[in-house]
Design a protein around this nucleic acid. Structure first.
Lengths: 212, 212, 212, 212
DNA sequence: CATGAATGAGGATTCATTCAT
DNA sequence: GATGAATGAATCCTCATTCAT
């Protein structure tokens, strides 16, 4: 479970090459169907090394996941540290944009996440899912709370449901950017940004505090 | 290519037993990781029979999917044929309730769908996804249009985005009812219904035409 | 081993259909690799019938072989009954032509024979091979003997070797007419006849009794 | 596609053991009916190794074939490099002897060749056949041409047909040495050599240039 | 520490044969 | 007598894992 330090000491380039190859396999095939054979060939390393570094397939998966989670956190930090003094809806729009940037740069990471979501017997599933969702959800929750404090959302807004809706939108929006056939007009990553204002319009009216 | 009629002629009980066992495997493991060995053991039939009935794994998957789609359609028919003369938001609430009933009765079918969504190299993925989504999405689209005609939603509602949001909520809501760890307060199927009014409140304000 | 009479009582058309389908399989794939599944599909009969008629795969093969042997005999009869009062070399040329006609009409039968030749563990191999070769070889042997009596071949001709050579030529010639890539200029069934005079020229000089 | 070097690096003894076991299977059963299970048991290696070495059954077959072809070439070299200053018929007799030596030492290789000849849907059939036949046929063709230049064969000899006849005799002669039931007096490898002079007698009269 | 050869369990699939209808 | 569903052994092949070099 605890990653061998051997892998850590590898040259950065090689580490990245291995992580990338593993991520590709897991993201495309899911955990069980992923083949270490294909991975090592892609990465150009010896098969034995995988087991030296990570113990077994599960350990490799955990490492890939942790590696990916770091990138997610980096991205989130960017948004969080944005000192933007704007209202929550502008903020949400920014987040969608950032999310889109993320799936554009790291489409495989998002696919990895969806596999985790949909496969009940994936090893470490619960552990990993709670870890990654904590990142995203806490962030949204905090956003909502602060907005409430600032009076940007209406008093009687059902918070739990609002949070759920935001997460649903976010997830589906990113999924559509990563996998085809989720709806005409949304299969194209390039034009997806055009929809963001529309979403904000609905959310603002549904959750906001503006007088008409 | 044309499905053998052998399977059709089986006694209903046996057919259902086989479909159920296959659905369990596919829903839990996804397509590639599903094991026909496990399935036939669960179903109590000979391994060779699977191939006599369905030709190959892909054929079996297609059959399971078709079988499941029928149940989805049955459910949708119930909602559609409901002659309810109510506004769209009451309707949406009904739909969420019905969806919850469905995932309660057929949790595996929904999991099957999520695998299809998240696995890019699933066989027949595009074909099957377009088929199943046509059912659901067309229904929601029609609902929105009629509501627009009746003036139940505001004139300037961005329709595409509204539709997307509804689908996202629907999907996520049902997913939460089927798989754990999507959020505290939502992991419990029994209490999920309590959230429906909250959702409707937000949607109505965001999309509706009511004067405050 | 003894063929069930059930098959004999079948309508001629059906019998022929079954034999033809079986011959195709055995000729193309050889005995072990032949599939009864494919055969019954081609023949459009029930799989169980094959076993009712012939007992098992081996019985079927024996029946196909017997059926084919009949056709060979028919063909040989044509040549034998030809009251041609010609010398042996004209006769041999006729035989090659007839053989070519035969492989043109029944290419599969010849392939069946080559499989039998080249597969050591084919069931009934020895029994069947001796049966079929008896037909051909005895005929050639008789031909040679009569020619010797008539003084058409030289006194000192080594008979065993001559017979062997004739068989070799015959077999190879027919094989080339049935399977490609045995030599440029011989892969084309249509032009093979042009080579016959050349062969006769060599044989006549090598075996004949003519004074230069 | 490119053959793994793993097999090449094996100890010679093991390589030979594997090749021998595989050759036995393929030679006895033909390609499709050959069983890798039986082979690995005979060779005493793990089943997985076969696929590590050769990729798949076809790759194994190609390797066995290449291995065998090398032995054929070695044998041919012996004959070719024989600086014998003799006429073509003495040469042909030598070749038959050498061929007999070869089938005595490597009977399976010749059987492999006959399967290739008689099985139309063997993988790589055309490719392999042209390769192996090039070796043998070119050699005979060259022999004939040189004999023509030296005036050892008659001017008006039909060359194509002569070549064909020589090949047919050669093939059939070797086949008889390897598989039983091709003719009494020829089924016995030990006495086959006795027939060679008889063949030469016929060929010399049929093709040669001697005045009686 | 890196390598890659060895292994056998398990994968999907095909098959000849049996037998109840 | 004809049918075709049921069966399980055997097919080729892939895989994660181990371990000697």
């Amino acid at each position: 479970m605890i990653p061998n330090t051997t892998f850590e000491r590898l040259p950065e380039e090689k580490k990245e090459r291995i992580m990338q190859a593993a991520l590709m396999e897991f993201a495309e095939k899911g955990y069980a169907a992923a083949s270490i054979n294909r991975m090592v060939e892609k990465a150009g390393i010896a098969k034995g090394s995988v087991f030296q570094y990570f113990g077994d397939k599960e350990g490799l998966f955990a490492a890939v996941f942790a590696h990916s989670l770091e990138k997610v956190k980096d991205e989130l930090r960017k948004v969080r540290d944005n000192p933007a003094r704007t209202d929550i809806f502008t903020r949400l729009a920014q987040i969608l944009h950032t999310g889109l940037d993320f799936t554009r740069t790291h489409p495989l990471i998002y696919r990895l996440y969806t596999h985790l979501l949909s496969t009940p017997d994936m090893p470490l599933r619960n552990f990993l899912l709670t870890r990654i969702r904590k990142e995203g959800k806490d962030f949204l929750a905090e956003l909502l709370e602060k907005a409430a404090d600032r009076g940007e959302i209406r008093r009687d807004l059902p918070m739990q449901e609002a949070l759920f809706l935001l997460e649903a939108l976010m997830d589906r929006f990113l999924l559509a950017s990563v996998l085809p056939y989720l709806g005409e007009g949304f299969s194209d990553k390039k034009t997806m940004e055009n929809h963001i204002p529309g979403f904000m319009d609905i959310l603002e009216k549904g959750m906001g505090n503006k007088r008409p």
